[in-house]
């Protein structure tokens, strides 16, 4: 499904600011795998997702989706394989467009866009059904501009937009981090629902260890641009926060003050 083969990414190479954000990272996801990604700040989690999505080019290595080499494909072309939700609730939707217009845009993800009507009656009915699954009452507010929604509502909508077109891979980058606990819990529940109902292959970054353990069937831990620990489906069933902390403390240079450990 997704095959990441020894990819590397260095920012500002050869300068004093050089940052090796990814060093020889390999990762393989099978159909319907749901992998959670944890790690300290600056570990390279976002960079990993951004290289998969094509937002950042890689220096070396290869990325394959369904066997197709995509690492040279521009971001907008890769979009047909990928659904994404960003950490910033403002990032995943167009604030001046209405809910139904945003959904229409998402509906055409990776498809040609022509002069057909953006919001037809049939699409609207479809959107209402989909929005109803969020249980936020958004199905009655199709013509509301998205900029008027709360952060949690926008993030729930982003999640729906990313998932309802059955992407081959769903990329979630700390998509609950900017929300207050209650709304974060809501979006987490929705994530589970959308991923499991669509059987979506998912890569989810979180800095909440409990969430990382509770969600998904596999887990990876990153540090300084490398994957330093992996829990397979079997191992993950019995995984505890203590085990993860233990793995983490084996690292030299990692401090317990890291944000990832405070949750």
């Amino acid at each position: 499904m997704l095959k990441i083969d020894s990819i590397s990414k260095t920012f500002f190479p050869g300068t004093v600011n050089e940052r090796k954000a990814l060093q020889d990272v390999s990762l393989e996801l099978d159909e319907s795998d749901f992998v959670t990604v944890i790690g300290s700040n600056g570990a390279g989690k976002s960079t990993l997702l951004n290289t998969v999505s094509g937002r950042l080019p890689i220096d070396s290595g290869s990325i394959r989706i369904d066997g197709a080499e995509v690492s040279r494909m521009p971001e907008h072309k890769r979009a047909r394989y990928l659904g994404r939700v960003f950490q910033d609730p403002m990032a995943g939707t167009a604030p001046d467009l209405t809910i139904e217009q945003n959904l229409s845009l998402a509906l055409r993800r990776g498809k040609p866009r022509g002069l057909g009507r953006g919001t037809t009656k049939a699409r609207r009915e479809h959107f209402k059904d989909e929005l109803a699954t969020l249980e936020l009452g958004l199905e009655n507010r199709l013509k509301t501009k998205v900029g008027l929604l709360s952060g949690g509502q926008r993030q729930a909508l982003s999640l729906l937009m990313a998932g309802f077109t059955q992407p081959r891979i769903l990329l979630l980058d700390e998509h609950t981090a900017a929300l207050d606990p209650q709304r974060a819990a809501l979006v987490t529940t929705l994530t589970e629902k959308i991923v499991s109902s669509g059987g979506l292959t998912t890569l989810m970054v979180t800095h909440n260890m409990e969430q990382a353990i509770a969600l998904g069937n596999r887990l990876i831990m990153m540090h300084e641009g490398r994957i330093i620990y992996q829990a397979s489906a079997e191992e993950k069933k019995n995984l505890t926060v203590e085990t993860l902390l233990g793995e983490f403390s084996k690292l030299k240079g990692a401090s317990l003050g890291d944000r990832a450990l405070l949750n």
């Binding site: 907008h76 994404r84 995943g92 167009a94 998402a106 055409r108 993800r109 990776g110």
Partner: peptide
């Protein structure tokens, strides 16, 4: 929102 629409292809 350029980032968003690019991510939608």
């Amino acid at each position: 929102n350029q980032q968003m629409i690019r991510s939608l292809g």
